[in-house]
Design a protein around this nucleic acid. Structure first.
Lengths: 213, 213
DNA sequence: CTCCTTAAGTTATAAAATTCACATGCTAGA
DNA sequence: TCTAGCATGTGAATTTTATAACTTAAGGAG
């Protein structure tokens, strides 16, 4: 199987293209060009074509891409042609928001278990889910075949939670705690850092002010 | 002022170094080497030194960096030597979580106004803040000198909110809605996409499975 | 005071990602 | 059927970013 490595930036953009295609599809658009996608998501047309080229040929020369088809392909590539059960640790405000976040459901993600070690939170309902004690995680993972966990706990607790997840067979972790997790090779980890992008903004605003001097 | 362009990846890492330094400082560590920072945040030592080199010389050869000093420098560079008042639109679960997120406060960000157009939400309290109608935004921006806005509304409403923010003088936007915003040049926009990183994980898990075949 | 170790700062090299430019091939219209 | 126009796919060129190798300087031991 000849598979040259795909840059992560390409996968990121593919995810964005995919969601944009969903929007086009909802609006009844049937055909789209690389240029239109590019404009819609804010990259160059060449970038769009190059990104897609990693995975095959999906368009028709002189015409463009069939929206429905390309949407299906992109979702397939991203692994979104199936439902992904997720377990989430941390039933604070962020955990609550993630549980109720529509953007997950609409892309095939479903949170099947919410856990916390705070007795005050255990037993509470988040939508149809009940917050469970950590000890229940193994059972829920097994029952639903979950492979991915989400961490939405304070930074001090994140490493411990991550270790527990790995111990119980999870293969990938989406970490919202602002710390670098130390995990065995083979475990996929991605961090979503809520304040880093904000600090990029303040950096740029500061730079802008400086340039005016 | 000779200022060569700083890669955004460098700024991103600088933000991460900075937070790691805060952690070291809290733990009473006084000196740190590029190698230790590197290990702590998961990059190479050369990367750390190279990143810092964009901004000056902060260490002592043969010794390392003074934690407190480097922390102060990184915060200064990122523009975090001042308080940043923020306005937030969208008082849903995500908006609520962002308002109460400690990671913002601890880095000098303070949400000074929360807005929504949903009558059911207006008037409600989030901590000490009251959810206000959109029309109050200009006043709050002026009063606090806010330059940055956060968008935490559903994707359909995001563009409109962004336009309103720009109209009222905001210069930078942190957008949590999964759509690309179309804004005039000069307005700084960064998107935090809650599901993109998740889709990178599913992509990688799928790839991993495929490789086993 | 000198040597040795350490680690920052810097230059050079390599790798990676993006852009460019063009050839290919499809569609529609005459 | 032929031609013109258009948008894809792709290989090459460029730019950007990261790694590695080297130089410089500080501090401590003898």
């Amino acid at each position: 199987m000849k598979t040259l490595r795909v840059p992560e930036a390409t996968v990121t953009r593919l995810s964005i293209y995919s969601r944009y295609l969903e929007q086009l599809d909802r609006n009844g658009v049937t055909t789209v060009s690389s240029g239109e996608i590019a404009e819609g998501v804010g990259v160059s047309p060449a970038q769009v074509r190059k990104d897609l080229a990693y995975f095959g040929e999906f368009g028709t020369r002189g015409v463009g891409y069939n929206v429905k088809d390309l949407l299906r392909y992109t979702k397939k590539i991203l692994g979104l042609d199936q439902q992904w059960p997720l377990v989430l640790v941390g039933a604070g405000n962020l955990g609550y928001a993630l549980c109720t976040y529509r953007g997950f459901n609409s892309r095939g993600f479903k949170i099947v278990g919410v856990f916390d070690n705070d007795l005050a939170k255990i037993g509470k309902k988040i939508g149809e889910l009940e917050v469970l004690p950590m000890e229940k995680m193994p059972e829920v993972i097994r029952e639903h075949g979950a492979r991915i966990g989400i961490i939405a706990v304070p930074p001090q607790a994140a490493q411990e939670v991550a270790d527990y997840m790995v111990k119980n067979g999870l293969e990938a972790i989406l970490n919202f705690a602002p710390v670098a997790l130390n995990l065995p090779a083979g475990i996929e980890v991605r961090n979503v850092d809520l304040s880093v992008k904000l600090e990029i903004l303040t950096f740029n605003l500061g730079f802008k002010s400086a340039q005016r001097l």
